[in-house]
Design a protein around this nucleic acid. Structure first.
Lengths: 159, 159
DNA sequence: CTTGACCTTGCCACAGTAGCAAGGTTCATG
DNA sequence: CATGAACCTTGCTACTGTGGCAAGGTCAAG
């Protein structure tokens, strides 16, 4: 009940072990397993020795995921995108809606980072940066210099 | 060794329970404990009933942390900033150096998000967003622009 | 004394990625 | 055929920062 050499045969037919799949998709083996556990990709076929086996179309899906991650989509969003991708009867409006909402999210994050940057840049500009201890940056963080220096609270929600 | 009512007395002397400290600093009680466990702030004094007690200067440090978080500093960076803050013989150049390197980090992140945004915006622009399935966004994620059947991979983005 | 508000610790969860460990599989080579 | 290198398996740990819940203790007021 055990084929002696199934992987080489599989390779000849366009099948890949997880390591080769990782190599060809630039998604680490670790992450491939992770995506499987999340259900982003279906459970891989296994050899008799329990090795995962991937087909070319599996690699396709992995590249899809990698590219979507490269655009900053979360795994949940990617799950939806994959669903739309696989659904030949999808409406492109659904995809576009998701994309636009992600753009809005990116804008939000960019704005947040930019306002941090602006505030810090301003403080840095006012700091002599010499051997003396006096430092407007620390003064600001301390809040001693002026509680009303900049309008109240920057809302948290870090990067 | 148990005074009957120590907290009210403490309050009168400018002491705060963790809840009140949270309220006055906008740092959640949870995070105050967390910062303590990280060593960002010293272990709090305790009442006989093991309640943490904070002084006004402790609140000061907590606000310092909150503001630094608001500027996007990591907890490690904040640990350094706190050290500089407490060190009266610091050189402002140290602070400035940290600030500038953080600005560079923010720039890096902003650029990354912006390039995602640009790429996605472009795709979204080309997507009709109607009831039909054809979708340039999915096509791009699929990598259709460069490959279709077999042959090597195309590394899309270096993000 | 009871009650309710507050505190304590500790564990789980999120997201995404990486590392390590102990053990099994494959396959080529000696 | 046996060995060993290279690869695979699962599972736990960690990171960063925040929130939530649970079981139990403390405190102050009624």
């Amino acid at each position: 009940m055990k084929a002696p050499t199934e992987l080489p045969a599989a390779k000849a037919q366009g099948c890949y072990t997880i390591g080769r799949a990782a190599e060809f998709t630039a998604v680490s083996a670790k992450m491939i397993r992770h995506y499987e556990s999340l259900g982003l990709i279906p459970r891989a076929r296994r050899t008799s020795g329990d090795y995962r086996v991937y087909s070319r179309s599996d690699l396709h899906a992995l590249r899809f995921i990698r590219r979507a991650r490269g655009l900053g989509f979360s795994t949940k969003e990617i799950a939806i995108l994959l669903g739309l991708w696989r659904n030949q009867r999808r409406a492109s409006s659904e995809v576009k809606r998701l994309a636009l909402s992600h753009i809005a999210e990116l804008d939000r994050k960019i704005d947040e980072l930019r306002s941090m940057r602006a505030a810090l840049k301003d403080l840095a500009k006012r700091c002599h940066g010499d051997a003396r201890p006096a430092c407007p940056i620390l003064d600001d963080l301390q809040g001693a210099s002026a509680e009303q220096a900049h309008s109240g609270q920057r809302s948290a929600d870090g990067v």
